[in-house]
Amino acid sequence: MTAVMDLRAVALAAAARGWPVFPLRPGGKTPAIKRWPQLASTDNDRIHHWWNTNPRYNTAIATGPAGLHVIDLDAGHMHPPATDFSEALARLTAVLPGPVPATLTIATPAGWHLYYRAPNQPRLRCTVARIGEGIDSRGHGGYIVAPGSRTPHGDYRIIDHRPVTDLPDILINRLTPPPPPVLPAGDWTSSTVAQPDSYLAAILAAEADRVAHARLHLRNHSLFRAALVLGRLVAAKEISEHHARTVLTTAAEAHIGVEGFTAAEADRTVSNGFRYSRARPRHLHR
Rank of each mutant, 00 (worst) to 15 (best):
T105G: 01
T105Q: 06
I106F: 03
A107V: 07
A107N: 07
A107H: 09
T108S: 09
T108Q: 04
T108R: 00
P109C: 00
P109V: 00
G111E: 02
G111F: 03
W112R: 03
W112G: 05
H113V: 01
H113M: 08
H113C: 07
Y115R: 01
Y116Q: 11
Y116P: 07
A118R: 10
A118Y: 06
P119K: 10
P119M: 11
P119L: 12
P119N: 09
N120D: 14
N120Q: 13
N120A: 12
N120L: 15
Q121P: 04
Q121H: 14
L124T: 03
R125D: 08
C126N: 15
T127M: 04
T127H: 11
R130E: 14
I131H: 06
E133T: 12
E133C: 12
I135N: 02
I135L: 12
D136S: 13
D136L: 07
S137N: 11
S137E: 12
S137V: 00
R138Y: 13
H140K: 03
G141F: 07
G141V: 10
G142W: 03
Y143F: 15
I144V: 15
I144F: 00
I144P: 02
V145M: 01
V145F: 00
A146H: 03
A146W: 05
P147G: 02
G148T: 08
S149N: 03
P152D: 02
H153D: 01
G154V: 04
G154K: 00
D155F: 00
Y156N: 05
Y156I: 00
R157H: 07
R157W: 01
R157C: 05
I158G: 08
I159S: 00
I159C: 06
H161L: 01
R162Q: 15
P163H: 10
P163R: 11
T165W: 02
T165R: 12
T165Y: 02
T165L: 04
D166A: 15
D166Y: 06
L167D: 09
L167I: 07
L167T: 10
L167F: 00
P168G: 05
P168T: 08
D169G: 12
D169V: 06
L175A: 13
T176H: 08
P178Y: 03
P178T: 14
P179D: 15
P179Y: 08
P179I: 06
P180E: 05
P181Y: 03
P181F: 01
V182T: 10
V182A: 11
L183D: 12
P184S: 01
A185D: 14
A185G: 00
A185C: 00
G186S: 07
D187A: 11
T189N: 13
S190F: 11
S191R: 14
T192A: 14
V193M: 10
A194C: 04
Q195L: 13
Q195I: 12
P196W: 07
D197W: 05
S198E: 12
Y199Q: 08
A201I: 05
A202D: 04
A202N: 09
I203W: 01
L204M: 12
L204T: 06
A206Q: 15
A206L: 09
E207S: 10
E207Q: 14
A208S: 15
A208V: 01
D209S: 15
D209L: 00
D209Y: 04
R210V: 02
